[in-house]
Design a protein around this nucleic acid. Structure first.
Length: 483
RNA sequence: GGGGGUGUAGCUCAGUUGGUUAGAGCGAUCGCCUGUCACGCGAUAGGUCGAGGGUUCGAGUCCCUUCACUCCCGCCA
């Protein structure tokens, strides 16, 4: 593998000979950038008055959240440590201990499958926590930190220095996802009510709407002169995504307003006027529509929003668009078990007066839980924590854990909170993703010195590897491998 | 666990509805040219077409199995 060239190489080769690959200009610079970003962040945090602490790597398995990596204990036969999915409980204990501002560039371990922006197994977070704070205080620190970091390390412009706040429910409606790419100007709108009008005769949608489906649409500006293939390709693409397609028409005006397109004839002049009023669509704009149940609809409109913007070249690649997603629900229904579960972090504080929470309607309960999203990538998630043991037992009971289970599973923390804890909260921005955005890379391996491949194997070090009988024996383990 | 993509010379890739001896560029080797430094010209070597099986007169191409890498869904409080 020549070092002085930009030639593409198979990822497998690059990973196996990573020590040579790392000599190459682009990735070498990425790794230097990563180092500089981490130093800068560490400095900023110290300047803000935070203290850096290390927390244990061998700890206990937690029942909520991702799959744990487990480590057998030699001295305690049959028992296992877990690698921390995040230093969540420890940082809360640090708050209880009276260190008011903590941070750490913390390794986190989660045994889940990889993605382009997600390393398998391990990644780093800027983990931080503060006492005696509310949501606003956390926002202030993190906004300043991220704005400073991104301005220092990238030439790209920030769309907002003050990150807009979008509620979870609004985000799902307007963008179909809780990680919207705000560089994309397209917005999803609900036009379900149109399909109960008598002068709209698009029976397929009308029937579905009658049985509870919704219709949402994306308006594209001034697309009347786009070739027919533009529209047909998008419809075809939607079908490939598993949806039943995207219906579309363009609003035109000859003498009267009319809808031009395969389903245009099903819409009367008046109904088109109503659609234009609802969606702010103008003559010459086109409308793409999907009809389905809410979650499928969110999925397809979200994908369609990206796809259409890409086809129309609407996304400015030289911008970072940050936003806060706020007001997450405390609980949600598990699709599989149909039971109520925590939708995010079980340690989040419910919103509102804690003495007046309506526990009868858990699905309506909102949490002081927030995410930062940049260019459609989830950068971090955080919360104001629940520091009241009584309230915590109550919330856990809604998710199906009794007091005894909570005491067992979260013994360290629940015990600590019962001795009196300050109100506290924090967040944990993903370092790898921050560097990925700054380096303008699509893949997290390009900013990771020694990454694993998609199957969580280190091709250079040959990890994971088999171990010998003696090692197993010492750990009181035997293997039963499924074929 | 599921779906998609890729796998052809050392490297990057092309290869049509199945049809003679599988090609190109870069690289390598040899020679020529030359005040060279991303030189130019000519020639040569280099392939179990990821692996295994099947269909066929005939498979890089079609079918099945399998392996590797990758992207996505699930999953990631």
């Amino acid at each position: 593998m020549p070092v002085f060239s930009d030639q593409e190489y198979a990822e497998e080769i690059r990973l196996k000979y990573r020590f040579l690959d790392l000599r190459r200009k682009k990735i070498h610079e990425n790794i230097i950038l990563r180092s500089n970003v981490i130093s800068f962040i560490r400095n900023e945090m110290l300047k803000f008055g935070f203290l850096e602490f290390q927390t244990p790597i061998l700890t206990s398995s937690s029942p909520e959240g991702a799959r744990d990596f487990l480590v057998p204990s030699r001295l305690n036969p049959g028992k296992f440590y877990a690698l921390p999915q995040a230093p969540q409980q420890f940082k809360q204990l640090i708050m209880v201990s009276g260190f008011d501002k903590y941070f750490q560039i913390a390794p986190c371990f989660r045994d889940e499958d990889a993605r382009a922006d997600r390393s398998p197994g391990e990644f780093y977070q800027l983990d931080l926590e503060m006492s005696f704070v509310e949501q606003e205080d956390v926002f202030k620190v993190v906004e300043e930190l991220l704005v400073n970091t991104f301005k220092k390390f990238s030439k790209k412009k920030l769309m907002f220095d003050k990150f807009p706040r979008i509620s979870y429910s609004e985000s799902l409606l307007k963008y179909g996802t809780d990680k919207p790419d705000l560089r994309n100007p397209l917005i999803i709108q609900d036009i379900t009510s149109i399909f109960s009008r008598g002068d709209v005769t698009f029976e397929i949608f009308k029937k579905l709407v009658k049985s509870g489906s919704k219709v949402r649409c994306i308006v594209t500006k001034d697309t009347k002169d786009k070739p027919r293939s533009f529209f047909e390709n998008i419809d075809k693409w939607a079908k490939e995504q598993g949806a039943s397609g995207l219906a579309y028409f363009t609003i035109e005006k000859d003498k009267d307003i009319s809808a031009n397109g395969p389903i245009g004839k099903f819409f009367s002049k008046d109904s088109l006027g109503e659609i234009m009023k609802m969606t702010q669509a103008k003559i010459g704009d086109s409308i793409f529509m999907a009809c389905s149940n809410q979650s499928d609809l969110e999925k397809i409109t979200s994908l369609a929003r990206d796809k259409i913007a890409k086809d129309l070249d609407l996304i400015d690649e030289n911008i970072f668009a940050f936003c806060w997603i706020v007001d997450y629900p405390m609980f949600e229904i598990d699709d599989l078990t149909k039971k109520i579960k925590f939708s995010h972090n079980p340690f989040s504080m419910p919103q509102g007066d804690t003495n007046q929470i309506n526990f009868e309607k858990p699905l309506e309960m909102l949490a002081f839980q927030y995410d930062i999203v940049c260019n459609g990538i989830e950068l971090s998630s955080g919360a104001i924590r629940n520091h009241k043991p009584d309230l915590m037992y109550k919330l856990f009971s809604i998710a199906g854990y009794n007091k005894k289970q909570v005491d067992e599973k979260f013994s360290g923390m629940i015990n600590a909170l019962s001795y009196g804890a300050p109100p506290h909260g924090g967040i944990a921005p993903g370092i790898d993703r921050i560097v990925m955005l700054l380096a303008n890379e699509k893949n997290i391996r390009e900013v990771t010195m020694f990454p694993m491949n998609q199957n969580a194997q280190d091709l250079m070090m040959n990890a994971p590897s088999e171990i010998n009988e003696d090692q197993l024996k010492e750990l009181n383990l035997s293997l039963k491998i499924k074929k």
